[in-house]
Structures are given as C-alpha cells and as structure tokens.
C-alpha cells in the first residue's frame, strides 16, 4: 500500500517542468508538497492523476501502474482541485450519485457517509441546487465532500484552503487527519503553511522542478538552516534566492 513516483520527468509538449522526481507515500502518511508558484507542484499532481503523460519515469499505487491500468489506478485516487470544477448540468445530489457510480460504491453506505459530510460543510439543505447557484467556497466544499465520499486509498489535494471559510478549513484539516488515521495516503500541495501544518506528517520541497528536500518539519528546518524561532515561511525567500541563482 504505497504511492511510488520513480524518476518522473514530465511537463507540457516536450518541455520538462519536473525533472527526475522520486517520491513515496506510505499508508497513514500526509505528504505536503511545498514550493513557489511555477515550482512544479501542479504538474506533479497532474501526472499522478494521469492528466499528463510522463516523458520518463513510472507512477504506481499499491502496485498498479498508472500507464498500464489507468481506470484501476484512478479508482483508488480522489482529487480536490485548486479551482472547483463541477458539472453545470448536475445538482449537488447528482454529483454525489455520479461519484457513487464512478467509484462503484455501495449506495446505502455511501449516502450515509455523504449525509455526515454534507452536514459538516452545511450543504445538506442544498442537494437540489445546480452549481450556478453556489459560491466559490461552496463549490470547493462540494469537491471536498465528493473526494472524501469516494473513500479511496490516495487523496490528492491541490491548494485546498483557498476560498474556504475558517470553519471549513478546520473541518478539512480534521478530515485529512482522520483519513491518515484510517491508513489512507494524502498528497497535498500548499503554500499556506499555517493551515496545512497540523495535518502534514512529511514535506517535500519542490523548486525548479526538482525535489530539493524531503522530511519532517524539523528536518526541513535543519536542511535550510532555519532556527526554531524563525518563521517557516522564510523558506520561500530561500527558494526564491535559489531560483535566481539557478
């Protein structure tokens, strides 16, 4: 039960954005991928989701190769994008029905879980709404509910906290912690460290398309020479300096 990314090089139309990425996420682990804009976080995620074809390297989840068995691989992955993407034709209830159909979930059990999640995010009275009537934050909550409903082994979350109210942020952090507690793997890209830090067990620092450091918060601090009193956000200044020197 692991996500393995081995020697992954990829990007758009032949131009490598990420170079020789090696990552591993074990059950119960929440990996936070951090880096400046354009560092390659979203590109890495797109490769894990099968939205981009790697130029080199391999991605496997629980021994299933993404390139060889894409549908089987995807059935074990749920995704929360940075910008919510919903079907304009479907109501909230129908989005959840579609998730049940796509991930082949047991309808009764899934709906019991869906009701809990809907209540948590205060969406339980909006089941018949079309996305056009939702605010950005509400749309993001629909994405969160759908992703956690899918009950997959791996959760991929891209910049999850943008547009969410503080209550929803706290709920999401708790859900991520619970998922990790149940042995699930979580890959989360974020640069708002204040929110994510409570749930993340290990970090990978991405800069110029390469993994520069990986480890716990303390290990990353030591790697970048940060004192305990220094704000962790200082890391971005160091990364920016690295980019200029590259």
């Amino acid at each position: 039960m692991t996500l393995k990314i081995e020697h992954l090089t990829g990007g758009y139309t032949g131009v490598p954005v990420i170079k020789d990425i090696n990552l591993e996420i074990k059950p119960g682990e929440v990996l936070g991928v951090i880096g400046l804009n354009g560092a390659g976080k979203s590109t890495t995620i797109k490769h894990i989701l099968g939205l981009l074809r790697p130029q080199k390297g391999k991605i496997t989840l629980n021994g299933i190769d993404l390139a060889a068995q894409p549908t089987k691989f995807k059935r074990q992955v749920a995704y929360i994008p940075e910008t919510p993407v919903l079907y304009s034709e479907l109501t909230l209830k129908e989005h959840l029905d579609l998730t049940i159909l796509s991930y082949q979930l047991d309808e009764k059990q899934a709906w019991a879980k869906a009701r809990e999640l809907l209540q948590l995010f205060r969406l339980d009275d909006k089941l018949d709404w079309l996305p056009i009537h939702f605010s950005k934050g509400m749309k993001q909550k629909v994405m969160i509910v759908s992703a956690f409903l899918a009950n997959t082994d791996l959760l991929v979350i891209d910049e999850p906290f943008t547009g969410l109210d503080p209550l929803a942020v706290a709920n999401l952090v708790q859900l991520i912690k619970d998922a990790a507690g149940q042995g699930k793997m979580v890959l989360m890209s974020t640069h708002i460290l204040g929110d994510g830090v409570q749930a993340v067990s290990r970090y990978a620092v991405l800069n110029n398309g390469k993994i520069k450091a990986a480890g716990t918060l303390a290990e990353i601090r030591i790697y970048y020479g940060l004192k305990e009193t220094d704000s962790f956000d200082q890391i971005y200044q160091i990364l920016s300096q690295e980019q200029q020197n590259a």
Binding site: L49, K74, P81, V85, Y87, Y103
Partner: peptide, 14 residues
C-alpha cells in the same frame, strides 16, 4: 461533451 471537464478525466469513468 464532457472531455474538457478535468473531473471527467480524473474520475475512473470507462
């Protein structure tokens, strides 16, 4: 019609 929707491609849909 749904090919441009990123979630359609991420979901395990045959």
């Amino acid at each position: 019609e749904f090919d441009n929707n990123i979630m359609y491609r991420v979901y395990p849909i045959e």
